[in-house]
Simulated scan of single mutants.
Amino acid sequence: MSEGPGDKFRVRSKGLGVVDSGSFISAVHADELRRTDDGWRTARRAVHVK
């Protein structure tokens, strides 16, 4: 996680999954979170599947 200017954070997370053939896949989520009056909200998301 890295802090950006103001009330913004960039977060990366990784997920693993098993497909029908028994192979594994992975995905990286790159999210940008922003603080609003209602709390933290996802402002942008990019998912990269490998």
Rank of each mutant, 00 (worst) to 15 (best):
S26F: 08
I25S: 14
L16W: 10
V49N: 04
V19T: 15
P5K: 09
H48N: 10
W40G: 00
A30Q: 10
R45C: 02
K8T: 12
E32K: 05
A27R: 08
I25E: 10
A43Q: 07
K14T: 15
E3A: 10
V19N: 14
G22L: 03
R44T: 06
S23P: 12
D20K: 15
K50W: 08
V28G: 08
E3S: 13
G15C: 11
A30D: 08
E3M: 12
A27D: 05
D31L: 01
D38Q: 02
E32G: 04
G6A: 06
V28Y: 02
M1K: 08
K50I: 13
A46N: 03
H29L: 08
G6H: 06
D20I: 15
E3T: 11
M1C: 11
A43I: 03
G6F: 00
D31A: 01
R41H: 05
H48L: 11
L33D: 06
L16M: 15
R45Y: 03
F9C: 13
V11N: 03
E3C: 07
G4H: 02
R35L: 01
L33H: 03
E32I: 03
R34P: 01
A30R: 07
V18W: 09
V11R: 05
R10C: 13
R41D: 00
K14S: 15
S26N: 08
D7R: 05
F24P: 09
F24K: 10
S23G: 14
V19I: 15
P5M: 11
V11Q: 07
T36F: 00
R12W: 11
R41S: 03
S13W: 09
K14R: 12
H48Y: 07
G4R: 00
T42Y: 00
R10T: 15
E3P: 09
P5Q: 12
K14L: 14
D37R: 01
D7I: 08
A30N: 09
S21F: 07
A27G: 09
E3N: 13
R10Y: 14
R44P: 06
T36R: 04
S2R: 13
W40F: 00
V11C: 11
D20R: 15
G4I: 03
L16D: 13
S26W: 07
V49L: 05
I25L: 13
T42P: 02
L33A: 05
W40M: 00
V47A: 01
G39L: 00
G39S: 00
R12P: 13
H48Q: 12
R45K: 05
H29V: 11
A43S: 05
R45M: 02
V19Q: 14
F24R: 12
T42H: 01
D7V: 06
D37I: 03
R44D: 05
D20M: 14
R12H: 12
G17V: 11
V47D: 05
R41L: 07
D20A: 15
P5N: 11
I25R: 09
R12S: 14
F9S: 12
I25H: 08
A27P: 06
S13G: 10
M1D: 11
G17A: 13
F9Q: 14
S2G: 15
A27N: 09
